[in-house]
């Protein structure tokens, strides 16, 4: 609860500071917004990590194969990084750059799921034989 209040307060402060600086120093405003984004997402990782650890321990206890989940974790991490970067670029008025980052994030997420696709394809092929 404290962390959420601190995150909200930091976000509001950064937004006000960026607004004040935007007219005279747009680059500075962008940097403040970006720094706030990184700090806030970092704080959010503090909530996500224990959840991920819990799911991992649940998977270990159930004897679930880790390779089914590693692609999912990686895709989620890529989503978070590309989301923060793309939204920051859109905020700075660079919608096109934001779009390119989203495209790269999507491609990267598909790339990390290649081993999983390959496993599924081998499974189907072995059965069809």
């Amino acid at each position: 609860m404290d962390t959420v209040i601190k995150v909200a307060a930091a976000g509001l402060l950064a937004a006000v500071a960026a607004l004040v600086l935007k007219k005279d120093n747009p680059a500075g405003a962008f940097l403040i917004a970006l720094a706030a984004g990184v700090v806030i997402v970092g704080a959010a990782m503090g909530f996500i990590s224990p959840i991920a650890d819990f799911l991992r321990s649940l998977a270990d206890a159930a004897g679930v194969a880790p390779e089914h989940f590693s692609a999912l974790y990686k895709a989620l991490a890529i989503s978070i990084v590309s989301y923060v970067a793309a939204e920051s670029c859109k905020d700075a008025g660079e919608k096109a750059v934001g779009g390119y980052i989203e495209l790269a994030g999507g491609a990267a997420a598909l790339y990390v799921s290649l081993p999983l696709m390959s496993d599924v394809f081998s499974l189907l092929r072995s059965f069809l034989r």
């Binding site: 999912l72 895709a75 989503s79 590309s82 994030g105 999507g106 997420a109 799921s113």
Partner: peptide, 13 residues
């Protein structure tokens, strides 16, 4: 856009 890949990865898993 990136999020749309997650259901696909979930389907594969």
């Amino acid at each position: 856009r990136t999020m749309k890949v997650l259901p696909l990865v979930g389907t594969l898993a």
